[in-house]
Design a protein around this nucleic acid. Structure first.
Length: 580
RNA sequence: GGCCCCGUGGCUCAACUGGAUAGAGCGGCCCCCUCCUAAGGGGCAGGUUAUAGGUUCGAAUCCUAUCGGGGUCACCA
C-alpha cells in the first residue's frame, strides 16, 4: 500500500476531469507529474508539481493553474486541506484518519508492507563477486559482494524473479599459475626448499591446500614434470579455491544460485556460436587496431586480429576476440557467457563490477546489445574502491607482500552486520573510506547500532506491554483505537512509515540499495526522537499503565515501526536486535 | 592523451534523477537519566554545492569549458 501513488491517482483523476471540462487539452501527458513528500514538513504531507509541469501546455501561469487544480482536489475525502506555495506547488495535507488507516493497513500486511509487484516476475540475473578463483576474498571484493546481494534482495522484494550468479574465471592462465604455486607448497610439505618467484602466488592460504593434496595423492607428483600433474592440479586448485570463496561468502550470509564456469564454455561450441551470431550480423572482421592515442606504447606494433565491431553498439573502439596467434581473448568467452544468460531467458541482466573493470563496461554492453538485438538490457553497476584506513592513516595493501586484508579478517573483527551496513551506507559509484579502527573502537557511533537500537527499544517496550497483558499480535493491534494517536510526533512517525513503499520502489528502479540504509537511519532517528519526547511528556510514552486501550494504540505504532525496520534490515542482510 | 567515476560545512556522506530556506553523522560549544533501554534526546556554531559560462518558471543535479582526485587503456584474466 503506497499512499503516495494512491494520492497521485487521485490527482490524475482530477486532472482528467479537468480535461473533460476542456480546462486542459484532452491529449495532456501526465507522466511527469509526481506526488512526493515535501522536504519541509511544514509544507504539508504531500506535494505535487502538476501545475508547474502543465502550465506551459495550457498557457496559464503555474499559480493560477494550481488554484484551479486545488479547488478540484479539496473535496476529496482523504484530503483535509490544499495549499499553493512557491512557484506553483500544490501542497496537500491528509486527514488524520487516513494516516490511521495506513497504520492499520501496515499491521495487517505485516512484513508484506512495502513489497510490490513492480517487477512483474521478470527474470533478472544479478552477477556479482566473480572473483578469480586464485585465493580467498579480500576487502576489495567485499563491497561488490554485499552490494550485489542487497540489490538481489531488493529486487526480489519488489517482485522480480532473481537469480544470483557467480562467474568462475577458471579458464585462463592464472589457474596455471595457481596450480604451480600449489605445487611449490606441495614440495615444501615434503621438506623441500622452494622459491616463490615473480608470477607465483606466495600466500599462506595455499599451505593447507597443499597438505590436503599430499594426503590425497601422497608423493605421486613429487618429482614429476609439469605435464604429469598440471591438468589434475588445475581442477583440484579451482575446487579448493571455490570452497574458500564459498566459505567467505557464507560469512556474509550470501548464497549464490548459480556458479557458472568459464571453462565449461571451452569445447562446448558456445563461444563459436556466440561469435557466429555476431558474424551473422556483420560485426566480426579482421583488422588492425590503431595504437592507443596519447598513451606511450613502446611495445605497440600493428597486428592483424579478429575484431568485434563494438563501435556499432556504442563502444569507443572495436575489440579483439581472437589474439594474433588465433586463441581466444578473455573477451570471447565472456561474450559467450552473456549470450548464455540471454538464451536462458533472462529479461534483465545486471553485472556488478569493481571500478577497475570500468573500461570493460562499454564493450560488454555492446556485446549484449548486439546479441539480443537490443532486447535485453544489461546494466553494469560499478562499485568504487574501498580505501582502508587504520587510525586515520591509509592502510597499504600490497599484492607482492601478500598482506591483503581478507574478507574473513574483516568480518571476524567487526561482524557481518557492521560490514554489510557500512558498505551499503554509500552510493556504489562513490569511493568508500573504511576505517578499521573507527568501526572497531567507536562501534557505538556506527549507524547500524543506531538502527538496531531503535528496534531493540521497541522490542523492549513490547515485552513490557505483554507483561501488562496487552495482546500484541498484529491482528489485535490493527483493531486498536488508532484515532487516539493525534500528537504531531506520533503522526510524523506514521508519515515516515508511509514513505517506505516508495523508497523501496525508487531504490529498486535505480538499483540503489543504499537509499534503504539512509531511510532506516531516518526512521530510527524519528523513533529515538519520539522516545526522547516521552521524558518531558509522559503522555507520549508507549506504555500508559493506567490506560490499557491507549497503550495498545501506541504499541500498534511501535510495532509498525519495528515491522518496517526489520523488513529493511532483511533486505540489507542485517539482523535486527531484540535486545541490546 | 582517450574513456569512466568523483569534487557539497573542519572530517565522512545524503539530497526522492530538475523543485521550495541544500540535510544528517562525526568533531566543537551548551543543556537533559527520580522517567518505557542515555548505544538515546534537545539546542548553538559551521555552505557562493571546485571554477566560469549556458539551458528554464526553477540547477548540487542537465550542457560546454577549465581545475583538482581516483580508476582504466589491444597480443592479462
Amino acid at each position: 500500500m503506497n499512499l503516495f501513488t494512491h494520492v497521485r491517482e487521485i490527482v490524475i483523476e482530477v486532472l482528467k476531469e479537468l480535461s473533460a471540462q476542456s480546462v486542459l487539452p484532452t491529449d495532456t501527458d501526465f507522466s511527469n507529474i509526481t506526488v512526493e513528500p515535501p522536504k519541509d514538513s511544514r509544507h504539508g504531507d504531500m506535494s505535487t508539481n502538476a501545475a508547474m509541469v502543465l502550465s506551459k501546455s495550457v498557457e496559464v501561469k503555474p499559480r493560477e493553474l494550481a488554484q484551479i487544480i486545488s479547488e478540484a482536489l479539496s473535496p476529496k475525502e482523504i484530503i483535509s486541506s490544499v495549499d499553493i506555495a512557491g512557484p506553483g506547488f500544490i501542497n496537500i495535507t491528509l486527514s488524520n484518519s487516513s494516516w490511521h488507516g495506513l497504520l492499520s493497513a501496515i499491521l495487517m500486511s505485516g512484513v508484506n508492507f512495502g513489497k510490490s509487484g513492480m517487477g512483474s516476475s521478470q527474470k533478472v540475473n544479478v552477477e556479482f563477486v566473480s572473483a578469480n578463483p586464485t585465493g580467498p576474498l579480500h576487502v576489495g571484493h567485499t563491497r561488490g559482494a554485499v552490494f550485489g546481494d542487497a540489490l538481489a534482495n531488493l529486487l526480489a522484494y519488489s517482485g522480480y524473479d532473481v537469480t544470483r550468479e557467480y562467474y568462475i574465471n577458471d579458464g585462463g592462465s592464472q589457474v596455471d599459475v595457481l596450480a604451480r604455486s600449489i605445487f611449490l607448497r606441495y614440495q615444501e610439505a615434503f621438506g623441500k626448499e622452494v622459491v616463490f618467484e615473480e608470477g607465483t602466488y606466495p600466500g599462506d592460504y595455499l599451505i593447507p591446500i597443499a597438505k590436503a593434496l599430499k594426503e590425497k595423492v601422497g608423493d605421486l607428483y613429487l618429482n614429476k614434470s609439469e605435464d604429469n600433474w598440471l591438468p589434475e592440479l588445475r581442477n583440484f586448485a579451482v575446487e579448493a579455491m571455490m570452497d574458500l570463496i564459498r566459505a567467505d561468502l557464507d560469512l556474509l550470509g550470501i548464497e549464490m544460485d548459480t556458479f557458472f564456469s568459464e571453462k565449461s564454455l571451452y569445447g562446448s561450441g558456445k563461444i563459436e556460436a556466440a561469435l557466429a551470431r555476431l558474424r551473422d550480423n556483420g560485426l566480426i572482421y579482421k583488422g588492425v587496431l590503431e595504437p592507443p592515442k596519447g598513451k606511450k606504447a613502446d611495445d605497440w606494433e600493428p597486428r592483424e586480429q579478429t575484431l568485434f565491431k563494438s563501435t556499432e553498439h556504442g563502444d569507443d573502439v572495436d575489440r579483439p576476440v581472437l589474439k594474433s596467434d588465433g586463441s581466444w581473448t578473455y573477451f570471447a568467452p565472456d561474450i559467450a557467457y552473456h549470450f548464455d544468460k540471454i538464451s536462458r531467458g533472462f529479461d534483465i541482466l545486471i553485472d556488478v563490477f569493481g571500478a577497475d573493470h570500468g573500461g570493460y563496461v562499454k564493450r560488454m554492453k555492446a556485446a549484449v546489445s548486439a546479441l539480443s538485438s537490443g532486447e535485453v538490457p544489461l546494466d553494469i553497476k560499478l562499485c568504487q574502491l574501498v580505501k582502508l584506513y587504520q587510525n586515520g592513516e591509509p592502510f597499504k595493501m600490497s599484492k607482492r607482500a601478500g598482506n591483503f586484508v581478507m574478507l574473513r579478517d574483516l568480518v571476524e573483527q567487526v561482524g557481518p552486520d557492521v560490514t554489510r551496513f557500512v558498505m551499503l551506507t554509500r552510493k556504489n559509484d562513490a569511493a568508500l573510506d573504511f576505517d578499521f579502527q573507527k568501526v572497531l573502537e567507536q562501534s557505538r557511533e556506527n549507524p547500524v547500532f543506531y538502527v538496531q537500537y531503535a528496534h531493540a527499544r521497541i522490542k523492549s517496550v513490547i515485552r513490557k506491554a505483554e507483561a501488562l497483558n496487552v495482546d500484541t499480535s498484529d491482528d489485535a493491534l490493527s483493531e486498536a483505537n488508532l484515532s487516539s494517536l493525534t500528537h504531531a510526533s506520533e503522526l510524523s512517525l506514521i508519515k515516515k512509515l508511509a514513505e517506505w513503499p516508495r523508497i523501496v520502489e525508487l531504490s529498486a528502479r535505480l538499483y540503489e540499495p543504499h537509499r534503504l540504509a539512509f531511510y532506516l537511519f531516518d526512521l530510527s532517528s524519528e523513533l529515538h526522537s519520539h522516545w526522547g519526547k516521552g521524558v518531558e511528556n509522559p503522555h507520549l510514552r508507549f506504555l500508559q499503565s493506567d490506560d490499557m486501550p491507549m497503550t495498545k494504540s501506541k504499541i500498534a505504532l511501535a510495532r509498525a515501526v519495528s515491522i518496517v525496520i526489520s523488513s529493511g534490515l532483511a533486505i540489507l542482510g542485517v539482523q535486527p536486535a531484540e535486545k541490546m
